[in-house]
Design a protein around this nucleic acid. Structure first.
Lengths: 341, 341
DNA sequence: ATGAAAGCGCTAACAA
DNA sequence: TTGTTAGCGCTTTCAT
């Protein structure tokens, strides 16, 4: 064992060590083309012995192929997105494609930057949350000439493919369920996030149906930062002190809804008799609360799986065509906090 | 506008469009070397006009530099890891380094595979959870000749640098606090994860101190899958029916602890008088519960930040040297479920 | 079944 | 300040 200056190993090193040409070594390592068993064995032994790790940069440049799929999402702290990732992963795992995650923090400028960075690695496809992007971002997506799947939301026109739910419709359906159950004095709590277009669309759908039925949101409040559970508790308390006549609270996500629910239980208030509650997302996490919050499943894992399938199908000429504009249907679960009519 | 066969743009195209040599275009786009303002403007205009996105693959191959940092973690569903990522991000954001995340699902074989994939992109550094890796993985890490920071845990010897807490010690300290508070009949609940070495070490430290004080765990139970909150509730109920004499329940994570706490509150059991409780992690999420679970902060964001700083310092010859073996000290928070002595 | 040559798109190093 | 040349480590293509 001689000490050489540290330099990553190359195909050349394996070639030298095994006495086989670089080209054949390359074939063995990629399982391409016909190679005799004897040669293959020699090469594999040498590669393992040396601890050779192929250089994908060079490989990608030469072959013009990159097995990466860019996945661009607003956040990792909101459990919704890790769940989508899990769905994407479960499908890509069976291929040689690798997801690479970029986070935008809900900021359009950051989205643009992250997208630029990722596209500069020439990925094979892009999965990106939402339909709202800057013009520059949309231009990049189009110019990349690779499959692009916009996920989560289907209220709008995609650059290429899309999979998600209609948040506007989700808001409408929840409003209908609430009205049917007989509630009329409704308060709303959500995140202070003008850039969360999906939350905005749910809210718009929600107020639209209320409005058509002559009902208006009587109180509303928005928070930012901090523990959602704690915020839900505090905001609920504050809102009920301010507007004691409310008979329903609609929360833009399950975590603050759960905070509200715990507060009401604490106070001994009759839920859903005196006050009804509903959130959004269907986060599994909350099973185990004393009572189940009414909510609506956002089909997160399914969205991830479908998006990955669309990418795969787009890349494979021989594959059966798949639906490229897919709207999933979330279902309401009434839990214990929304009266059934 | 003529329709050409779709082909990604190259430096060459920008060079042609601007009448400036490829080399100078390259310099402009990277802000390297002296370029006249006039030339720079011409180039930037042409690049923007065309919508040129540089090809990092070619750039990386030529310059032998890749601005990626591989981050390898067991899971994204456990909030702990997204929080570490946030810490890493917050520091890397101020450099041109980009984290790239790989997930191992707590499986050594998968860790090995993910590591291999990531190293084949020749990243500038690696941040990897835990100190336990297969021999092959450790060999790869060493052979890569790049900074490697092992995070979360410091009970063991790192390949290169490490940042984390001593989980064994965390377990010991919690045991001491519990004994000092006077509890003697202790039950334990955790995840059924033989491969979660940190949970194992906490448990070992915990039982070690109990043992030295003549106390033994009187009942234990492990779960896998499902909603942690719900599991905590169910397991707590089952354990107390089985072992009604217990006066303390130690949970391997805060989520199941919270489930247990909610169950006990529901039952009207006196916490921490009749039964004390403690978890681990200090998840912010749980603020907002009716009562605060005793827990121990795992310093997640701090670990992420420090790890990123070590990578940066290792890459920058001129930087001040930083501590490369860093053990942070978690602190107990007693909350409302562990008596102070 | 194996090898040799060319070149992927960029940047380091040097020349002008 | 700008341009030229020679590769980075691999794969494609074509020859043997």
């Amino acid at each position: 064992m001689t000490l050489e200056p540290k330099r990553p190993l190359t195909l050349r090193d394996v070639s030298d060590a095994s006495g086989v040409s670089e080209m054949t070594v390359s074939r063995v390592l990629r399982n391409r083309g016909d190679v005799s068993d004897r040669t293959r064995a020699k090469v594999l032994a040498a590669a393992k012995e040396l601890g050779y790790v192929p250089n994908k940069i060079a490989g990608a440049l030469a072959s013009n192929r990159v097995n990466l799929v860019a996945v661009i999402i607003p956040s990792l702290s909101n459990m919704v997105f890790p769940e989508v990732l899990t769905g994407i992963n479960s499908v890509l795992e069976e291929t040689d494609l690798q997801p690479v995650v970029g986070v935008t923090d809900y900021l359009p400028e950051k989205e643009e930057k992250v997208l630029y960075e990722m596209l500069s690695w020439r990925p094979s496809g892009v999965i990106i949350a939402g339909l709202e992007h800057s013009d520059a971002a949309r231009a990049m997506l189009r110019a990349a000439s690779i499959p692009v799947v916009e996920i989560m939301d289907t209220d709008g026109r995609p650059v290429d493919a899309m999979v998600g739910i209609s948040h506007r419709r989700a808001g409408r359906e929840m409003a209908q369920a609430i009205l049917k159950a007989g509630y009329r004095h409704i308060g709303f709590m959500g995140t202070k996030m003008p850039l969360d277009h999906r939350a905005r669309k749910r809210f718009e759908g929600f107020t639209e149906v209320l409005g058509k039925n002559g009902v208006e949101i009587e109180d509303r409040d928005f928070y930012s930062g901090g523990s959602a559970l704690a915020k839900g508790r505090e905001m609920t308390q504050a809102m009920l002190e301010r507007s004691p006549d409310l008979d329903f609270l609609y929360y833009s996500n399950d975590m603050i809804g759960a905070g509200g629910l715990l507060y009401l239980i604490d106070k001994g208030i009759d839920v859903p008799g005196q006050i009804g509650l509903a959130g959004f997302n269907g986060v599994e996490l909350l099973q185990g609360l004393p009572r189940q919050l009414a909510t609506m499943d956002a089909c997160r894992a399914e969205i991830g799986r479908k998006a990955a399938e669309i990418i795969i199908a787009s890349l494979d000429e021989t594959a059966d065509p798949v639906e490229r504009q897919l709207t999933l249907s979330p279902t309401i679960s009434y839990g214990d906090t929304l009266k059934r009519w």
